[in-house]
Amino acid sequence: MSQSKHAEYHVHVVPLRVLFAVFAALIILTILTVGVTKVDLGGLNIWIALGVAVVKAVLVALYFMHLRWDSPYNGLALVVAFVFVGVFIGFALKDSLEYQKYVERPALLDRLQQQTIPAAVPSEETTEESSSEH
């Protein structure tokens, strides 16, 4: 029952300068992510925000949470968790975007009935435009 494969396992102590460097990077990234909100990059903004968040998360996981020196299985648990959250969100989001046309349809019909046709057409354009802007 001896676990010889773990015998040479030793606990890694993270050097202080690594901790401070990581902390500094996290603060810089926080400032960056707040700053980049002020710049209009269209649909890219959300992905930049998420990308910065992922970088920050990776830094925390690797250094604060010792994953860099840990058993790979521990990191696997984290990665698998994120992958499955991704699967969950991916399918559910794709589906709701797909069926949204049926959800919105009654409202659309209402509008068409209450508006004259020329008025209804720009209404489509403005909603599309304003949503694409942000």
Partner: peptide, 16 residues
């Protein structure tokens, strides 16, 4: 990856 097969008739989109 298969949970949607419980929802074929409940309004899930055709694609999914």
């Amino acid at each position: 990856l298969v949970w949607g097969h419980h929802m074929f008739t409940s309004g899930q989109s055709e694609l999914l």
